[in-house]
Design a protein around this nucleic acid. Structure first.
Lengths: 241, 241
DNA sequence: TAGTGGTCTAGACCACCGC
DNA sequence: CGGTGGTCTAGACCACTAG
């Protein structure tokens, strides 16, 4: 007897979730309130506890409720606004706008990385790393400037990589798996070197996306991608629902 | 007979997931490869299909594999880098650094919002909205400048709100539920007005976080938060695992 | 220690959609 | 058509922890 009510049968756990969500949004359950336990909800909705569990877990994953064993489930006090940004391959980002993408490798050299890079990527002291600077163009106009260090120990094959077809970014994503990553965003006055590449006035406000990836404990790559003034990064989806 | 092997018993679905993850990271299953179906994996791991399902679903949620009904599950070609940023309450962000937070409401007035705001928040033509400018201080130094419009129809009580204790940001989060939101990040040369507030040189590069929230189809608030040069926004967690 | 969420199981039906 | 993932169920045991 899996359905006492056709409305719930057709719906599944999403239906339960949406109803719980409604009660939260309409303040029927106010922030801080304890909501009924899974067994009670399962009883109310005439479904298995696993179904309720999945619904509530979904809300918990979104940060709308907090759960603790024994203590029960409460409506979150300050529903955290999580923003999920897609960090796309630049080529795909540009082409998604219907504009032709092209990249130019401006620099490519083995060199000793700066101390900061060396430490974060766990590169041995004195060891060389690959430094690559790439300009990405959208319809002929500068779109982003990618300044990157690659740890040879993590990606030795990169020495033979052909960056004509695949940009360093793409090559790494496709050839070097990573297990961890970190991203930081900031605004910076464009230094001369970057301003020249992006063809903007020196000291213009650029959006800088710094990204580092690791495979286990070994750093793979660190990059700074600078976008010209006016560039925006959007949340891929609404950050709550 | 729920456990043929103690190693899996102790672990649960995370254990299965981690093993699948290992095979992906170590290129045992390469990008584009079809992985065994749920029944086969359940058989291999000596567990219920639901357990495998949960493990694989977790990877799918992270974008590491793609699933389609009849077609099976494949290792993703371009594992998308999703970056999850916490967009915290400024007070909490500052206090988390161990610094005292204070805010000052610099402007507070009813006015006709600019067309762009009016349209996005679905404010009736000619209707007034509440405009509030707030400066947030960390240890006495300017930390962020919040320039905000609030839709009165969505939050009429805001007229009586006391912004001395709670900043407009906090007040809204605690008093006005929303169902959708959008965030954009960009870099901008600080206009005179913002530069003065933040006590920085005009045209310095500021990081601008624009945020809009809706409750159903009705806009609630739109805000532009400007951070002085040097400010960084980090991913809250590694963006893959 | 008792009640909560967390997880697992075995089995079932269904929706989708490549073949 | 048939195989895949998606979901649900009823029941069970366990881990955690508030009271």
């Amino acid at each position: 007897m899996n359905h006492a009510d056709a409305a719930f049968r057709a719906a599944s756990w999403r239906c339960v979730r949406d109803e719980l969500l409604r009660r939260i949004n309409e303040r029927i359950w106010r922030p801080g309130d304890l909501i009924p336990n899974e067994a009670a909800l399962a009883d109310e909705f005439q479904c298995a506890r696993a179904t309720v569990s999945r619904a509530v877990r979904d809300l918990a994953d979104k940060g709308l409720v907090t759960r603790r064993r024994r203590a029960g489930t409460r409506v979150a006090l300050n529903p955290p606004a999580r923003a999920v940004f897609q960090i796309p391959i630049l080529r795909e980002e540009v082409e998604a706008k219907g504009v032709a993408h092209r990249h130019i490798v401006l620099e490519r050299a083995l060199a000793a990385p700066p101390a900061l890079v060396r430490h974060r990527l766990a590169i041995a002291h004195g060891a060389a790393a690959l430094h690559v600077a790439t300009l990405h163009l959208a319809g002929g106009a500068p779109y982003a400037f990618d300044d990157r260090w690659i740890h040879l120990e993590a990606a030795p094959e990169v020495l033979d990589a052909d960056f004509d077809r695949l940009s360093p970014n793409e090559w790494l994503v496709q050839n070097t798996p990573y297990t961890d990553g970190e991203i930081a965003l900031s605004a910076e006055d464009a230094p001369e070197r970057v301003a020249t590449r992006l063809n903007i006035a020196p000291k213009s406000a650029t959006l800088v996306l710094e990204r580092a990836t690791w495979r286990g404990d070994t750093g793979v790559t660190m990059t700074r991608i600078s976008f010209p003034p006016g560039h925006r990064i959007f949340t891929s989806t609404g950050f709550r629902r």
